[in-house]
Design a protein around this nucleic acid. Structure first.
Lengths: 125, 125
DNA sequence: ATTCCATATTCGAATAATTGAATACACAAC
DNA sequence: GTTGTGTATTCAATTATTCGAATATGGAAT
């Protein structure tokens, strides 16, 4: 029972990093705004009524995790979402009303997996 | 510029709650395992090589945020994912290699939005 | 160069998340 | 009852996150 058993660790590590960066209401609102069109810090600050320094802090978190990037046009520095498809998919998934598992099906599935493991050896269910 | 401007706050609050519950590598690995089939704490503990109490703690976080639930079969207490569609969609979205924004398109879009706002009034870009 | 404006960073305080260890609880089997 | 087995909870220590305030930086315009 070493860490060899632990499957796909780095995969889940990087997934968790992205999810952590997304897991804040203000950051989600920022992303929502940037998906409409690229915006400067001031614009986001005014739309969301959140302090400018805080917007900058959240943007830096989003930038460090690769979710947004920025570019300059003259004196304007605007931010944009790097992979809009990813973010739209995440938001759409969260907006969707997903059906609940049928608990009877789950019960059957558990018993089945239980039997299979008991036949093989004493693996815990 | 009151909080009336802040759009969909509760929507992003609840989304952030779910994302926060998902934003941990061990919890993602637990969900990954539970999507295969329902499992008991001990089984997860052995597969992931994470302490039993810690598995219980993570499961309680996942249960409190509505992501998993548990049921009993005899002396076994197994956990399962409540809305597998949601979790599968999230993991699949994270596994996908999404294309990057075309930065020239973004630049154009920013300038366009900039002009529109300048015509209307002095709204920050 | 100085001023102005937008943005970034630093700092400190408060709060929250994470984890191991120990312990408590539940409940079946004896 | 007691024992055993699986699971949950509590506690404490550590580490991380969040945010306002203040300050710093950077670039354009004067």
């Amino acid at each position: 029972m070493t860490s060899e058993n632990r499957p796909d660790q780095t995969r889940f590590d990087s997934h968790a990093d992205i999810l952590k960066a997304l897991a804040h209401p203000v950051r989600l609102m920022i992303i929502d705004q940037l998906l409409l069109n690229p915006k400067c810090v001031m614009a986001i600050h005014e739309i969301l009524d959140v302090r400018q320094s805080n917007i900058s802090q959240h943007l830096s978190i989003l930038r460090n995790s690769g979710i947004v990037a920025s570019d300059s046009d003259g004196s304007y520095r605007y931010y944009y979402v790097r992979r809009p498809g990813l973010l739209k998919a995440v938001l759409e998934t969260l907006d969707t009303d997903w059906p609940e598992t049928d608990i009877e099906e789950v019960r059957k599935k558990f018993k089945k997996a239980l039997n299979k493991n008991q036949k093989k050896q004493g693996i815990n269910p």
